[in-house]
């Protein structure tokens, strides 16, 4: 059953390692696009089609294009060797970080279990998730619970996010000292 998930996880992991190690920035960008696409498929497997669509369009599409445009505008260092030298102190630091996080692993709930508190088990019986899943259609008449939460229950939050995106567009124009795109 989860052979798909395991193979996708391995693919994602390998492409992430390749992204980190490729010396040529162009190769790293291309592998990162493959990584995003693998991630999008993993999201689909984990029952999040909305997120998968966004990740495929933005992560694999727009991010790649912006990165490519940046190296076209600036410079692409010529690479003699294919891979970077591995920075040993950084690996030690990062390894310690990952090991500390890994000690949390036994205490986490298994992936996909309904015993987790988010599903209203234990002391919590009325969690936001339970409410949204049960009441979203009756209250908003939207079949897609994600859209219902996005636009209705958390509308104010979405407004903030939209304004952040708007501000980022202005910030890019400011940093590049442009009032027009020409």
């Amino acid at each position: 059953m989860s052979a798909i998930a395991y193979s996708l996880a391995v693919f994602v992991l390998l492409s992430a390692v390749a992204t980190a190690l490729f010396r040529d920035v162009l190769s790293a960008i291309v592998v990162f696009a493959a990584y995003s696409l693998g991630m999008a498929i993993l999201y689909t497997y984990l029952l999040a089609p909305d997120v998968a669509m966004t990740e495929a369009a933005i992560g694999a599409g727009v991010t790649t294009i912006l990165l490519l445009l940046t190296i076209a505008r600036t410079t692409r260092p010529s690479a003699e060797e294919v891979f970077e030298r591995v920075d040993v102190p950084a690996v030690v630091v990062v390894g310690a970080f990952v090991l500390v996080l890994a000690t949390l692993l036994p205490d986490m709930y298994a992936v996909g279990t309904q015993d987790a508190p988010i599903w209203g088990q234990g002391v919590l019986s009325e969690t936001p998730t339970v409410h949204y899943v049960q009441e979203a259609y009756a209250e908003t008449h939207a079949h897609n619970a994600v859209s219902a939460v996005l636009a209705s229950y958390r509308g104010f939050d979405t407004f903030g996010e939209a304004v952040v995106v708007f501000a980022a567009g202005i910030a890019v124009l400011l940093v590049l000292k442009r009032e027009v795109f020409a």
Partner: peptide, 28 residues
Amino acid sequence: MEAVEVGGVALIVSGIIVTLFFATAAGF
């Protein structure tokens, strides 16, 4: 909800994607 989704978020996101692209393409 439709007013916010179609009139708000969709316009902002599509406009910003194009803005980011043209701004980055123009460079400094």
